[in-house]
Design a protein around this nucleic acid. Structure first.
Lengths: 337, 337
DNA sequence: TTGAAAGCGCTAACAA
DNA sequence: TTGTTAGCGCTTTCAA
């Protein structure tokens, strides 16, 4: 691997000082009153030889790595991968590189990737948190690290959060089933912090109509087969159910699998899923879903983070929680068939 | 943000020299014959204050960033995200951070992210290439940069490649339809380099039985709606088709959508998809698919790359192409119904 | 308008 | 066995 030219080499070849060169390289030519000719000469030469300043040297010197660390539950989850790719795009344009790491919803894993990213001197964090990580976040926060929390948040921490109205979404999904004549609505969810508001939304509607709650809260670390098995159990032991509201995409898939294995009666169950999926449109019946505004979420996250990273510690945006409404995409699965 | 201790600060506090400290920090204590007590003292203190050497300083000094750059077509594609997360896991354990960037199948985008990653001093590349990128890859190659090519490859470049037997897979998928009685098999694919072998596989089988080819090659940059539209067109203008083989996951989704909009006759078409998907199992009929061995692919890629990065330029593994076989997962969509 | 040089944090050759 | 010190490539203060 051929060694790249350093700024000294280039300065030498150009017969200018490194200072001058550095100024021009950083677009401070005007500001520092470098002569037009010199600026031109430098720029031409740079382009010609394709010189690129070494990022590491620059980072070490400036203390900024121009890197953003993002921690999601699981990058294979379409919601996360879409948010991540939306963010990546804008980050790139702003000169930042995005490093995405998965926590797999495990506390230790999450702590260790935060540490890793920290050791890598990321300039900012984007985190989808899980229970138990509060302290770590509080530490980063008190250290004044630019950071945006998304997907769910801890109200007791004064962080900058971007979330959707999970409670309202779950409430409406449940109501939607109710309004279509379903009275025994089951709710299948995960034992994850991010699901709490959805549970609240469901419970809140059920209580408001004095219906019976049927909640299945699954450990988050089960695989597809196991979840399908658990759901099958749940459905068969709760014969009165006429409809189900799934709290995530993945659960819906397992749930549909489970339903398809059961007898005819189940083919008529009402179904709603939290999180939309391209395939829901293709299925028969089409699956009614709560859709999160992914584009808006990702763009809000990255713009605020960029803003925080550009601003000096003291006058950063106030901590706040931005809540996006969700959409109910009505398809046929939520109707009586 | 509080300033972190440097190695000098710590050396001072410990009353040892930076050299000693650096050696111990890098696990060279034994090798450099540092006394057991000193090693112990250092390790204890390090742990106590939670000191972590600055990565940038280290990288600048060693010339290794301990970072791997991966370029995929689109991180939202489940195939890529699964390969990426498999790689990330192993890379992390080996002390490497993975940066994943999407090319969106655009040449310029791909060139610019390769440049970006290069400027970021990544130690190795993992690339899913597209047409037109040959020269860039050849440059990296002649520069002796550790690199693994996957998904598809250019036989004329002597790179290290990890691919599946696309041709054989497509051949068998087509044969499978044939053996189930379908005689007018359409093939819907994309205008991407990575699809060429699949086209060959299809063509090869069709020719071997003297059947008629029906190929729809779509521009890769269409969105879901447009693709659905094009497929609908294709199906209605080729009334003789009794089955379709879709070249990618995403095409299958659009295709199913298109089929669902057409009249009853289409409900009986034979269907096979290249690339499996969790949902294929849930659909009715279940979609028969060619499944790539994702785990093996990702593990092979990263292990070989780690190996290349650990080895001095001259005695690296010979360039070679590792080809994995694919599996045909038979479900009901490929039977006469 | 330009140059010299210190410093960012770390590694490792060399000296002691 | 430990300490000194010269880089790694860049930014930026200070002086000219």
């Amino acid at each position: 691997m051929k060694k790249k030219r350093s700024i000294y080499d280039v300065a030498n070849e150009l017969q200018v000082s490194v200072t001058t060169l550095s100024f021009v390289l950083n677009g401070k030519g005007q500001e520092k009153r470098i002569s037009k000719e010199v600026i031109h000469k430098i720029e031409t030469y740079i382009k010609e030889i394709g010189y690129q300043p070494n990022h590491l040297g620059r980072s070490l010197s400036t203390g900024k790595s121009k890197t953003i660390g993002m921690i999601v539950g699981d990058i294979n989850n379409p919601f996360f991968s879409e948010v991540a790719s939306g963010i990546e795009k804008i980050a790139l344009q702003a000169g930042y590189t995005l490093i995405v790491a998965s926590s797999n919803n495990e506390l230790n894993q999450m702590k260790s990737v935060i540490k890793l990213l920290n050791d890598r001197n990321v300039d900012g964090f984007i985190i989808s948190p899980i229970t138990g990580i509060e302290d770590t976040i509080a530490d980063l926060r008190s250290d004044n690290r630019p950071m945006v929390i998304f997907n769910c948040h801890f109200p007791e921490l004064d962080t900058f959060n971007v979330v959707v109205d999970n409670k309202q979404g779950a409430f409406e999904a449940t109501r939607h089933l109710y309004e279509n004549g379903f009275r025994n609505i089951g709710f299948i969810t995960l034992d994850l912090y991010s699901q709490n508001e959805r549970i609240e939304g469901y419970s809140s509607f059920i209580e408001s109509r004095h219906l019976n709650k049927h909640i299945l809260k699954l450990p988050y670390k089960l695989d597809y087969e196991q979840i399908t098995h658990e759901i099958t159990q749940f459905l068969t032991t709760n014969q009165e159910l006429d409809s189900v509201f799934f709290s995530t995409n993945f659960l819906t898939l397992s749930g549909l699998k489970a339903l398809s294995h059961l007898d005819g009666k189940y083919a008529k169950m009402g179904i709603v899923s939290f999180d939309d999926h391209l395939l829901y449109d293709v299925l028969n019946p089409g699956i009614t879903a709560i859709k999160q505004p992914v584009k808006q979420i990702s763009s809000t996250i990255i713009h605020h983070l960029l803003n925080m990273m550009d601003t000096s510690d003291d006058k950063r945006t106030e901590p706040q929680t931005i809540v996006f409404p969700v959409d109910l995409i009505v398809r046929t699965s939520s109707f009586r068939r």
